[in-house]
């Protein structure tokens, strides 16, 4: 047993080598420190909230998707397990509302079907740039994974043990709620730019996309505020980036359970085998 504990102690030292990694995710300090949010899909047991994903989808559809593409999102994804939970009929009807390009048929255009990807708002990059102050609005497919917030020491070590993976939605929420009506004194903002305390460099070419009451949620329970919208759409973007999160975690529990039990059995077998062998 003594040998075992000294092994564990040394393994901790080795773990520090690993722990020196995350600092690389930290990078340079940009803007105001972002605040972490509570997410239903955070932590080990977290799963997406269907209602929230549906609301987030509504915001994406009515607000974001007029400029942002989501090239890897297919209509069929919206009915898949662990997602917003739309029915097959809803998805078919939704897809049919869109016209998609199809070079394999005459005229090159037809109504969408569930297998189609989300249509791009702009025909090409140059038009997208021209329409958006010279910047292509980033694609939503994996955007929530391509952003993160800084975790100062020693929080980034804790992240390994809490499996913190929500830096993307945290950043998006903070960005969407981080606009200032007027830039602080001494900061020059060019026409077509907006001051945002969370954006690197603070000058963002995206106008504040959300405002209280701009999207009409069904029912009265959920407040129609910028904060609520930001949260819902950030959750939706996380699902777009990681559509199989729930299935992944569910599988993980089974694998962990198996490994822990198997390790226990192996340990007992090993101990029995070695009882009479001094070592």
């Amino acid at each position: 047993m003594k040998r075992m504990t000294s092994f564990v102690r040394s393994a901790l030292v080795a773990g520090l080598v690993l722990a020196s990694g995350p600092a690389l995710a930290a990078g340079e300090s940009h803007g105001a420190p972002a605040e972490r949010q509570d997410w239903t899909f955070g932590g080990l047991f977290g799963t997406y909230d269907e209602n929230q994903l549906q609301r987030g989808f509504q915001i994406f559809r009515e607000v974001c998707s007029s400029c942002h593409s989501a090239n890897l999102l297919a209509f069929r994804n919206l009915e898949e397990d662990g997602g917003p939970g739309f029915t097959e009929g809803q998805v078919k009807a939704l897809a049919a509302e869109y016209t998609v390009q199809d070079d394999t048929i005459e005229d090159g255009e037809r109504p969408g079907i569930p297998a189609d990807r989300w249509p791009n708002p702009f025909p090409d990059e140059f038009i997208a740039k021209a329409a958006n102050n010279g910047v292509v609005p980033p694609d939503f497919s994996v955007l929530a994974k391509a952003r993160s917030i800084e975790s100062p020491f020693p929080i980034w070590i804790v992240n390994y043990f809490t499996a913190y993976q929500e830096g993307g939605p945290d950043y998006i929420y903070n960005l969407l709620t981080g606009y200032h009506e007027e830039a602080p004194e001494g900061v020059d903002i060019a026409p077509g730019q907006y001051y945002n305390e969370h954006f690197p460099g603070n000058k963002l070419s995206m106008a504040p996309p959300l405002a209280d009451g701009i999207v009409d949620y069904e029912g009265d329970e959920v407040p129609e505020t910028t904060e609520q919208y930001a949260k819902d759409v950030a959750a939706f973007m996380m699902w777009v980036a990681d559509p199989h999160l729930v299935h992944r975690k569910e599988t993980g529990f089974k694998v962990m359970l198996f490994l822990v039990l198997f390790a226990g059995l192996l340990y007992l077998a090993k101990r029995k085998l070695w009882t009479d062998v001094a070592h």
């Binding site: 995710a25 994996v142 390994y160 499996a163 980036a241």
Partner: peptide, 17 residues
């Protein structure tokens, strides 16, 4: 398995997305 199933992106860099 902890990393694979619960934190697959924590060892990498967000920029690679």
């Amino acid at each position: 398995a902890w990393f694979v199933f619960f934190a697959p992106d924590i060892l990498g860099h967000a920029d690679n997305y």
